[in-house]
């Protein structure tokens, strides 16, 4: 079986998210980068599926040439191939992103055969539009369900469908999607592996394909400015760590009516 995972390079913020002077981007000059956490689970899921059923997994990203780092990380986790769909690295709206992804997926399928599954993160960690996967699936005419946290990647795949679950508070909805299908997965689907040293070495040498993004231009949503939320002004009362601190905490909890 063939599985595609779509990932996005995002900065790793510390306690605050720095914004550039013009307010149009996150100032990531001093930040490390990763793929969105949901997507790391999607990558792990794809690797596990191919380990269990054979076939091939491919990771794709739309972004600047720097996103090569995230593709190689996915390869170091066990994905077979990386594909960079290169842009200027600017902030692309969801419609523009989805259109470019659809074009890239069609090209990959023309060359290497159809993907049984296309996996997305439920939402990107940074922009959080909650829609790119749905737009791509709709354009490809394939079913998609968001919020997937349990995938029965078991023997069912062979019969042309995949069984998935998504938690809804105290219950879990079960779906059975005919293949080919798309999924928006959430962190918690699995515990992504740490790449082995061998995996890292392989990833360094791996061939990552690069192609220019099919660009239809901006859609109807555009970024005007980014801004940090106002600091919540709270003065912190330092409570002692000894018995007097315990007494003070009990007093506080009583005031809050958490203790009676």
């Amino acid at each position: 079986m063939r599985i595609l995972v779509c990932v996005k390079r995002v900065p790793i913020p510390g306690a605050r998210i720095p914004v550039t002077a013009d307010g149009m981007a996150v100032d990531d000059a001093l930040l490390g980068h990763t793929m969105s956490p949901h997507e790391e689970c999607a990558v792990e899921g794809a690797v596990q599926l191919v380990e269990a059923h054979g076939g091939e997994s491919v990771v794709l990203t739309l972004g600047s040439a720097d996103a090569d780092e995230q593709l190689r990380y996915a390869v170091s986790m066990g994905v077979d191939k990386g594909v960079l769909v290169e842009t200027d690295g600017g902030d692309w709206d969801p419609q523009r992103t989805a259109t470019a992804l659809v074009a890239a997926i069609r090209t990959l399928e023309d060359e290497g055969g159809p993907f049984d599954l296309v996996l997305f993160g439920n939402e990107s960690a940074d922009a959080g539009g909650f829609q790119v996967g749905i737009r791509v699936a709709t354009a490809l005419g394939r079913p998609i369900v968001q919020g997937i946290k349990d995938v029965e990647f078991g023997g069912e795949v062979a019969d042309g469908s995949v069984r998935v679950q998504r938690p809804t508070g105290s219950a879990s909805e079960r779906y059975e999607l005919p293949l080919p299908a798309c999924l928006g997965v959430r962190e918690g689907l699995n515990l992504p592996r740490y790449p082995t040293m061998r995996g890292r070495l392989q990833a360094r040498r791996a061939e990552v394909a690069s192609t220019a993004a099919h660009d239809v231009g901006p859609g109807g949503q555009s970024l005007l400015a980014l801004q940090s939320p106002p600091e919540q002004v709270s003065t912190t009362e330092i409570v002692g760590a000894g018995p007097e601190g315990v007494d003070r905490v009990i007093e506080v909890l009583t005031e809050l009516k958490v203790l009676s």
């Binding site: 919540q232 912190t236 760590a241 018995p243 315990v246 905490v249 009990i250």
Partner: peptide, 28 residues
């Protein structure tokens, strides 16, 4: 960062403070 954001902060080892707090609440 969590201490900066907190209304109250205990600067110490949770492995000592939490059991002491549990014991004190039980003893009430």
């Amino acid at each position: 960062n969590m201490v900066q954001k907190a209304n109250w902060a205990v600067i110490g080892d949770l492995h000592q403070f939490v059991p002491a707090l549990v014991e004190a609440i039980r003893a009430r």
